[in-house]
């Protein structure tokens, strides 16, 4: 099994406006590394709490902080035939976990539950196929793209509080492979997708119409769109470039904010977010939540940026145990989960 431990709070990672303070450390006693981490509100007969999720290739565990401050594993779901690739956050959903399974690409998406009857953990398959991209949307919906090019199928599935599938709606596919989705803050019925050739597509979720396909005009291949914001008649998108060539590493920002006019399909870079002078490395992986972006850099450092200020607000260098490999925002957005390859997850408050 897995063990818990609590580390005394200490102050780390201060730079300019942001403050990262470590509050807890969770450690898998098997020492196997986590492929993903996350948070979920969990309701049970005897507690309601914001819990931490850790995913290794063969299991997903739900951790709860006990009254004395220690963390304990409440439930573990095991996977024998397919590996866990990622946890899929579901905005506003409680007591339900969504995971993507597969090897090189996602082949199945499952919901994970805990049944009070017999105290058992259960799983149900939501979608199977060659899944290229998936995103959990508000109002208990999940959007997926399967296949590629002309055979592509883009679908929004809605589900009940118990995770049962209610209805499925097809979105008109673009004639390019979708590699990432992002919902649009400020415009609930809009959804954007990023294609393999760096085109941004916009759908109307209510009608399923494909409204626009626009080039975002950046030179890095297979950029990822993390988030979109609709304001003042423009779409602002936050992009990262995990597949940019190493040789260009010095000049590649971790994130870029690009403004797009959907009426004319013209775009312009608003700001480029890079590490402060003296820090090295390029973007490895990261997450954007509200107006904050966090990334693990190839140097093993975590950096946090404020998208409104347009600058790096905190840097968390590798600690004495090793380099960082994962970073995720908590659903409360004032906490950051930071993972290392030895199966450790550190919880930081971010203010």
């Amino acid at each position: 099994g897995e063990v818990e431990c609590l580390v005394e709070p200490s102050l780390e990672g201060i730079l300019g406006e942001g403050k990262l303070q470590m509050t807890s450390k969770l450690k898998s006693c098997s020492g196997s590394s986590f492929v993903d981490v996350g948070t979920v509100w969990w309701e049970a007969a005897d507690f309601t709490a914001l819990c931490v999720l850790t995913a290794s290739e063969t299991s997903v565990s739900l951790w709860r902080q006990m009254d004395d401050g220690h963390w304990a594993v409440m439930h573990t779901w095991h996977f024998n035939k397919v590996l866990v690739i990622q946890i899929i956050p579901l905005p506003g959903v409680r007591s339900l976990v969504c995971v993507a399974l597969g090897s090189l690409e996602i082949v199945e998406i499952r919901f994970l539950f805990h049944s009070s009857e017999g105290d058992s953990v259960t799983q149900s398959s939501v979608k199977a196929g060659k899944i290229k991209a998936v995103l959990g949307l508000r109002k208990r919906r999940l959007v997926t793209s399967c296949g590629s090019l002309r055979d592509q199928e883009v679908e929004v599935a809605s589900f009940s509080e118990l995770g049962r599938s209610n209805e499925r709606q097809t979105l008109m596919p673009p004639e390019e492979t979708i590699l990432a989705f992002a919902d649009v803050e400020g415009m609930q019925e809009a959804l954007v997708g990023m294609t393999a050739t760096n085109c941004l597509v916009v759908w109307n979720l209510a009608s399923g119409q494909l409204l626009r396909k626009m080039s975002v005009g950046c030179s890095y291949p297979a950029s990822v769109c993390h988030r979109a914001y609709a304001d003042l008649g423009l779409l602002f998108v936050v992009l990262s470039h995990p597949h940019a060539k190493e040789s260009k590493a010095c000049g590649i920002p971790a994130f870029q904010v690009v403004a797009i006019n959907p009426k004319t399909a013209r775009s312009a870079t608003v700001t480029s977010l890079s590490l402060p002078l003296g820090s090295e490395g390029r973007y490895l992986e990261g997450e954007v939540r509200d107006a904050s972006a966090a990334a693990v850099m190839t140097s093993g450092t975590i950096a946090v940026w404020d998208l409104f200020l347009g600058r790096c607000t905190a840097v968390l260098p590798p600690n004495s145990e090793g380099k960082w490999s994962l970073v995720r925002w908590s659903v409360t957005d004032t906490c950051l989960l930071a993972g290392q390859n030895d199966g450790s997850v550190y919880i930081y408050s971010y203010t």
């Binding site: 415009m187 109307n204 403004a259 009426k263």
Partner: peptide
């Protein structure tokens, strides 16, 4: 970026594109 870089901006772009796009 300036408005001239991006062309004329419409606050109602979502509704306008929805009325123009094929169903």
């Amino acid at each position: 970026c300036s408005d001239s870089d991006l062309g004329p901006i419409s606050i109602n772009w979502f509704e306008e594109l929805s009325s123009e796009a094929p169903p």
